[in-house]
């Protein structure tokens, strides 16, 4: 397996591959203009694996489409892989890979043919394209499907072909838009492995959008949380959870009266017979549980169950916005806004 991350200098390793300043996009919609993305400042360094997390309609895909030159910004500017998205969109396109939400191979095309065409689009020689296509077909377990029509592939196979198409020219920066949407758990796990391999083994810088909490949590070393077109948090998943959520301890009693009585000793919130300790109260994590048991025992209160859990990125989003990302993610707004000229 070839690796080229190790061959990079420190300067290259810390080089900024995405740099956005005041980036904004406004769409015309019924009832007035909508700021899909507003005043976005963002820097992604070479070799980072960054997840853009937020509910449907938060502005993730619009941001991605701005950075990949599919949309022109209404305000601000961004440099991607050293090229301006406004002044040199062709330069950006030559340097990036893009794997969109939909299946990107033509349905009536053969699998290998589509890879050959994609290589030609990026100016690779016929020989290099053929070598690269066979290499990707083999590594993504598509070798036996090389001469099959795309329309006959399963969802997971099509997704692997999407990855191959996005990688044919060995991009230094790869954008993935909700890569695992619609995949079964096994295909999703496979996809995650491919993404991590790309970063770890080849030093590819990866920028992905997702509304799956576990995807951002497990894959990314850095998470940007977006809501209503603005980035509202930017840190590692662990730091975000530690700083903005804290551990959760839930104490269940036989009755709501006991739960209310316990509240005086534990803090937190009650809901029926359940007490949920706030982030601050549960900050000590699992070490707080024995102290809690002793305090309740001293007060003559006997809990039925005590559970402790690590915070999730949903807790982070809840603390930031007062809404649950899980619920938001399930109610995607169905709109077809019109672009407002920059």
């Amino acid at each position: 397996m070839g690796s080229y991350a190790g061959g990079m200098t420190d300067t290259q390793n810390t080089q900024s591959l995405i740099n956005a300043r005041g980036l904004g996009k406004t769409f015309a919609a019924k009832g007035g203009a909508v700021d899909a993305v507003s005043n976005l400042n963002l820097e992604v360094r070479r070799g980072e694996l960054v997840a853009f997390l937020g509910p449907n309609g938060a502005g993730k895909t619009t941001t991605l489409r701005l950075l990949t030159t599919l949309l022109t910004p209404s305000s601000g500017e961004a440099t991607v892989a050293g090229c301006s998205i406004s002044r040199d969109p062709a330069g950006v396109r030559r340097r990036i890979g893009y794997i969109g939400q939909g299946n990107s191979a033509g349905h009536n095309q053969r699998v290998r043919d589509e890879l050959l065409s994609q290589g030609a689009f990026y100016g690779l020689t016929r020989r290099d394209t053929a070598v690269r296509a066979d290499e990707l077909l083999e590594s993504l377990d598509l070798g036996s499907l090389a001469h099959r029509q795309v329309i006959g592939l399963s969802g997971g196979q099509k997704r692997r072909l999407d990855i191959a198409l996005g990688l044919i020219h060995r991009p230094e920066l790869l954008f993935l838009d909700e890569p695992s949407t619609g995949l079964d758990p096994q295909s999703r796990a496979n996809l995650w492995k491919h993404i991590v391999d790309l970063r770890d083994d080849f030093g590819t810088t990866i920028f992905l959008t997702t509304h799956y909490l576990d995807e951002a949590d497990q894959l990314a070393e850095r998470v940007l949380v977006m809501d209503h077109g603005e980035v509202i948090a930017d840190d590692s998943p662990a730091a975000l959870k530690s700083r903005l959520a804290g551990d959760r301890i839930t104490v269940t009693f036989d009755s709501a009266a006991d739960a209310r009585a316990a509240l005086r000793h534990t803090g937190g919130e009650t809901s029926g017979a359940i007490v949920t300790l706030t982030a601050e109260a549960a900050a000590a994590g699992e070490r707080a549980v024995p102290q809690l048991v002793r305090a309740l025992d001293a007060a003559g209160l006997a809990p039925v169950a005590i559970t402790h859990r690590q915070p999730t990125l949903d807790d982070v989003f809840l603390n930031l916005t007062g809404r649950s990302l899980r619920e938001e993610g399930q109610s995607a707004p169905a709109s077809n806004p019109q672009e407002v000229a920059a």
Partner: peptide, 27 residues
């Protein structure tokens, strides 16, 4: 499944409209 990748080449070259048209036509 393990991803393999030959070493990267330099940034893909610029192509002209005629070459692009031919590549789209072939596809």
């Amino acid at each position: 499944i393990t991803l393999t990748q030959t070493p990267p080449t330099s940034t893909p070259p610029r192509t002209g409209v005629a070459t692009d048209t031919w590549n789209v036509l072939v596809r």
